Simulated scan of single mutants.
Amino acid sequence: MGQNYLDVKAKFIRGFSDKTRLQILECIKNGEKTVSQIVEELQGNQSNISQHLACLKGCGIIVGRQEGKYIYYSLRNEKIKEMLELFDEVLNQVQTEVAQCDSHLY
């Protein structure tokens, strides 16, 4: 594994490392939604949500499909959904340690 590969891998993983982005991913995990639907469900700010959607799209985690004047966002594929479910599974096993961890840089 070369350094460049690890840099790209770290960028990809950072796509999952924000609370708002995780909320967006959970929101679209079971089906595509427009920005307006995501904003309404998360009770967020459209500008902020749009920036996070751009990040997720840029990281290859989600895709957008244009239909008329709307863009529908969804997970890139079933593997991303499986990864989110695996995160939940692993977190359930280590939740106490993670909650108590204060040694990581944020």
Rank of each mutant, 00 (worst) to 15 (best):
residue 27 C to W: 01
residue 42 L to H: 07
residue 70 Y to H: 09
residue 93 Q to M: 08
residue 10 A to T: 02
residue 66 Q to D: 05
residue 56 L to K: 04
residue 98 V to H: 12
residue 15 G to C: 03
residue 33 K to E: 09
residue 60 G to A: 04
residue 49 I to R: 05
residue 60 G to W: 06
residue 4 N to L: 15
residue 18 D to V: 10
residue 56 L to Q: 03
residue 82 E to N: 09
residue 5 Y to H: 09
residue 47 S to V: 02
residue 2 G to L: 05
residue 100 Q to K: 13
residue 83 M to Q: 07
residue 99 A to C: 07
residue 60 G to F: 05
residue 31 G to N: 13
residue 16 F to P: 02
residue 4 N to V: 15
residue 24 I to T: 10
residue 69 K to H: 11
residue 90 V to C: 01
residue 89 E to W: 09
residue 61 I to Q: 04
residue 63 V to W: 04
residue 17 S to Y: 00
residue 29 K to T: 04
residue 68 G to H: 02
residue 53 L to Y: 04
residue 42 L to F: 04
residue 104 H to Y: 13
residue 100 Q to E: 12
residue 6 L to W: 07
residue 9 K to T: 03
residue 58 G to A: 00
residue 2 G to D: 12
residue 86 L to Y: 04
residue 102 D to L: 02
residue 54 A to R: 15
residue 6 L to I: 13
residue 89 E to K: 15
residue 33 K to V: 06
residue 15 G to S: 05
residue 31 G to M: 10
residue 83 M to R: 08
residue 82 E to H: 05
residue 22 L to A: 01
residue 59 C to L: 13
residue 84 L to D: 12
residue 20 T to N: 06
residue 88 D to E: 14
residue 106 Y to W: 07
residue 66 Q to Y: 01
residue 106 Y to T: 11
residue 8 V to E: 11
residue 24 I to C: 12
residue 53 L to S: 05
residue 72 Y to I: 07
residue 21 R to P: 00
residue 53 L to K: 03
residue 9 K to N: 05
residue 98 V to D: 10
residue 41 E to L: 08
residue 9 K to R: 09
residue 103 S to L: 12
residue 44 G to W: 02
residue 79 K to R: 13
residue 81 K to D: 02
residue 95 Q to I: 11
residue 14 R to Y: 08
residue 105 L to H: 13
residue 25 L to M: 14
residue 93 Q to G: 03
residue 97 E to K: 07
residue 13 I to Y: 06
residue 26 E to V: 11
residue 74 S to G: 05
residue 24 I to A: 11
residue 31 G to W: 03
residue 47 S to Q: 00
residue 63 V to R: 11
residue 82 E to C: 03
